[in-house]
């Protein structure tokens, strides 16, 4: 082989290798999951126990991880914030161990510290959500203690309805957010002095309680509807909660403006079924209306009554 050709081949191959490996390296860095980047933190916080070396006495100590400092690594990886490094939100000083005590005095970021005024997140209406939150009973009862994270665990939160998931999964997911405090006194008493919580008892009036709890989100009745938000954040005092059945069980079902809002927005152009999006996954008496069946039933009923009327006329005229 001509030495000059050989030199060219070497140059081309080395260029290709460089380009491919170079790009590959960049892509791998981009795709590096949060858990990889956070390996150092999750080594302790991703487990129920952790070990550290007591340098003074040369002892390896194993301790239990405090439950509210434990991070479910799978839930975190799947969450909306799963791509972040721990130190994107927490102080970089946490990278040293033992962590300095004063770090815990620092205030946590709220949603709008990152999302506020960002056109990229405008579709999520974070600014309106914040305004609604300040109107909510939750904030007004405990302004110092209640914040975004009281409901939305930053380490596991993921959007549900807005991504068009199954309604039943959305209901379970969203209700679990409420039940985290409202069915657990240890969490509940962090935010209030009230001691007795028994949502089964307070909802005794609700017919088919179990069925409602499984298929309807707490927020359908306990929040003010909001036209511009997919999920209202104005949680109302219990005295203002919806109690009229027909708010949901009617043609103008409230569920269409809340639980089924995303799906109704998606299928707004389709015609035929009134409240069709409810029909796709469930059955809500009074809210499920089928336009064609309605017309057909009116026609059949009209024909029967017309037949009876005409027959009656003949009987009258032929009576003699």
């Amino acid at each position: 082989m001509n030495p000059s050709n050989f030199k060219h081949i070497i140059l081309i191959v080395s260029f290709l290798c460089n380009v491919s490996f170079g790009f590959g390296q960049e892509t791998n860095e981009k795709n590096q999951s949060g858990s990889d980047k956070n390996q150092k933190c999750l080594k302790c916080h991703g487990n129920h126990t952790f070990k550290y070396m007591n340098e003074d006495f040369g002892l390896e100590i194993k301790e239990a991880m405090c439950s509210n400092r434990f991070i479910d690594t799978i839930a975190f990886a799947q969450s909306n914030h799963g791509m972040f490094k721990c130190t994107d939100c927490h102080s970089p000083e946490y990278e040293s161990f033992p962590h300095a005590g004063n770090l815990r005095m620092g205030l946590m970021y709220a949603c709008n510290d990152c999302h506020g005024g960002d056109p990229e997140y405008a579709k999520f209406h974070f600014d309106e959500i914040e305004e609604a939150f300040y109107e909510s009973m939750h904030y007004n009862r405990a302004p110092d203690a209640f914040n975004c994270w009281s409901c939305h665990n930053p380490h596991s939160y993921k959007t549900q309805a807005s991504k068009g998931g199954k309604i039943s999964e959305t209901v379970t997911y969203d209700n679990n957010i409420c039940l985290k405090c409202h069915a657990d006194i240890s969490q509940f008493e962090l935010l209030t002095e009230r001691e007795n919580i028994n949502i089964l008892k307070t909802h005794n009036w609700l017919p088919n309680q179990e069925l409602h709890f499984k298929n309807v989100r707490c927020i359908e009745c306990h929040t003010q509807l909001n036209d511009s938000l997919l999920i209202s954040h104005v949680v109302m005092p219990k005295e203002n909660a919806i109690r009229e059945c027909t708010k949901c069980h009617s043609e103008n079902s409230r569920l269409m403006a809340s639980l089924y809002k995303y799906k109704s927005m998606e299928s707004r152009k389709s015609n035929g079924f009134i409240n069709a999006v409810i029909i796709n996954e469930s059955y809500v008496i009074g809210a499920n209306r089928n336009k064609y069946l309605n017309i057909l039933s009116v026609i059949i009923f009209g024909l029967v009554l017309s037949g009876i009327f005409i027959h009656t006329l003949f009987r009258i005229f032929k009576r003699k």
Binding site: T246, H249, E251, G286
Partner: peptide
């Protein structure tokens, strides 16, 4: 009354009573 429930229609029985 349940299928066509409408609190504003006086001809229908209330939803709760109907159920």
């Amino acid at each position: 009354s349940m299928q066509y429930s409408n609190p504003e229609n006086p001809l229908l029985i209330s939803f709760e009573r109907s159920v």
